[in-house]
């Protein structure tokens, strides 16, 4: 009983936050249904790339590898995806190339950190600098892609009152795919053999090793799979959401994704919820600018999502518990 007023229980805390969001949502919906629907839908659109990017972090860190190179992975794969699509006039090939680029970039990261046992922060930084330099150097103006992915409604689901419009209408295929992929990653991590092994490698590689699990193999595969998702996000942004490549288009999204991963406790569904919340804050700030709230300067309204991130991190920090072996090199033989 004495714990009720003591430290705030994380579950009740999550519950309160969810309840608050729902109440605000319903209130706004009643007040102005159309605007609310479009704000929520654009919150989804802002949130999904971040949610997917944080899946990259989860795949890597659950197996014990810190990957701060998500930013660079997305940038590189967005670049190759866009220009290949532009050259071949085929966005499907472009997306495939983007995914392959992501895998290759992550493979380099895996090689540096797992095989050569390099510091993981430095490896990630190398990837970020490399990506930023390479894409800026090779960047050419004026390229276009023939088309972006079509936007459509999902039949039946989009008609569900209240949530249908937000989740299932007026989006592209990758956006919808994310709604399947994220729960699938959750199932992978918590319900499959691969997931159990991945978590054991991220928590205590020694125990995995003595159980006959190859720590190196599990880490390699997770990092490369994570890279595939990173490539998907790069392609997603350049070929579906925006439809073009611009220098440094990621603008820190890779790092925001890591913050959302931490906020979501390395749990795919948690990170997804965090990303959607962040996306909503961003959508709301855009909407406020459109409404033109006169007495608050625009700059402050644009700050809203970032203030939100900082607040969320401040209040959720301290209770987080990352995978125990994260960031540590695993050496098999120790005297």
């Amino acid at each position: 009983m004495q714990r009720v007023f003591g430290s705030i229980n994380i579950k009740s805390w999550k519950f309160l936050l969810t309840a608050a969001v729902l109440i605000v949502w319903i209130y706004c919906y009643v007040a102005n249904g159309d605007v609310t629907n479009s704000v929520v839908a654009s919150g989804m659109r802002f949130g999904m790339p971040l949610a997917l990017a944080s899946m990259v972090g989860i795949m890597c860190e659950r197996s014990g590898i810190v990957n701060i190179g998500i930013e660079g992975t997305m940038l590189l794969s967005g670049f190759t995806g866009f220009y290949v699509a532009s050259y071949t006039k085929n966005i499907i090939i472009g997306l495939i190339i983007a995914i392959l680029t992501g895998m290759l970039t992550s493979f380099v990261h895996a090689l540096m950190t797992i095989q050569w046992q390099m510091d993981q922060i430095i490896a990630g930084t190398i990837i970020n600098i490399l990506a930023s330099g390479l894409t800026s150097f090779l960047y050419k103006e004026g390229s276009t892609v023939p088309n972006t992915w079509p936007i459509f409604d999902i039949p039946i689901l989009s008609r569900i009152p209240f949530i249908g419009h937000a989740f299932f209408s007026q989006q592209g295929p990758i956006q919808y795919f994310g709604l399947i992929l994220i729960p699938a990653i959750w199932v992978l991590i918590y319900k499959t053999r691969w997931g159990l092994r991945t978590r054991s490698v991220g928590e205590n590689p020694g125990s995995a090793d003595t159980a006959g699990i190859s720590v190196i193999k599990v880490r390699m595969i997770n990092v490369v799979l994570g890279g595939a998702i990173g490539g998907l996000v790069g392609g997603f942004i350049c070929l579906e959401l925006v439809g073009s490549f611009s220098k440094e288009f990621t603008a820190g999204a890779g790092f925001t994704a890591l913050a959302l991963m931490i906020f979501g406790r390395w749990n795919p569904m948690g990170a997804f919820a965090a990303a959607i919340l962040f996306g909503l804050a961003q959508a709301l700030s855009t909407q406020l600018q459109i409404f033109g709230v006169n007495n608050i300067p625009n700059q402050f309204i644009t700050l809203l999502p970032y203030v939100f991130t900082i607040l969320v991190l401040v209040f959720s920090a301290g209770k987080v518990r990352p995978p125990a072996a994260e960031g540590k090199v695993y050496k098999k033989e120790e005297a």
Binding site: R199, S200, E203, N204, S207, T210, R321
Partner: peptide, 8 residues
């Protein structure tokens, strides 16, 4: 040294 995963 016990080779157990403490959180599992």
């Amino acid at each position: 040294h016990f080779q157990l995963v403490p959180v599992m």
